[in-house]
């Protein structure tokens, strides 16, 4: 069965860049969300084994999504993808249960080691 991948970013451009950077031979079903609310809804419907999550979004931001998911047992891998390069941003999301913090601009070389480390891609 394909893995459900959820790409969350308010920028359509950023979502495109991320999807383009995913391993080409990865058996996945991709869904997109353009804000935190949509992301949480998709997670609750069980449509997110792996979430690529932007931090700075209008409405519920990436931190808010992580807090909600953590309160609901966080039954998925969350990889934060952000333009925020402050070390504190990384610390905050790792505390909230993200498995990795990838700096924008994202590319395949940045994503692959993370996906391999967690065995989501073999």
């Amino acid at each position: 069965m394909p893995i459900s991948v959820l790409v969350v970013d308010d920028s359509a451009m950023a979502r495109k860049m991320l999807i383009k950077s995913l391993p080409p031979d990865w058996d996945i079903e991709i869904r997109q969300a353009c804000n935190g609310e949509e992301a949480i809804a998709a997670y609750r419907q069980g449509r997110a084994d792996v979430i690529f999550l932007d931090l700075n979004m209008p409405g519920i931001d990436g931190y808010g999504v992580l807090e909600t998911l953590q309160a609901e047992d966080l039954n998925c891998f969350v990889i934060v993808v952000s333009a925020d390069v402050q070390p504190q941003a990384r610390e905050r999301v790792m505390k909230l249960g993200a498995i990795a913090f990838v700096q924008k601009p994202v590319d395949a070389a940045k994503l692959e080691p993370v996906l391999r480390e967690y065995g989501v891609v073999v």
Binding site: A14, A83, D84, V85, Q86, K104
Partner: peptide, 12 residues
Amino acid sequence: EIANIGMGRAGR
């Protein structure tokens, strides 16, 4: 989106 990445650096 490109400006967003630039502003991330400015923020740091």
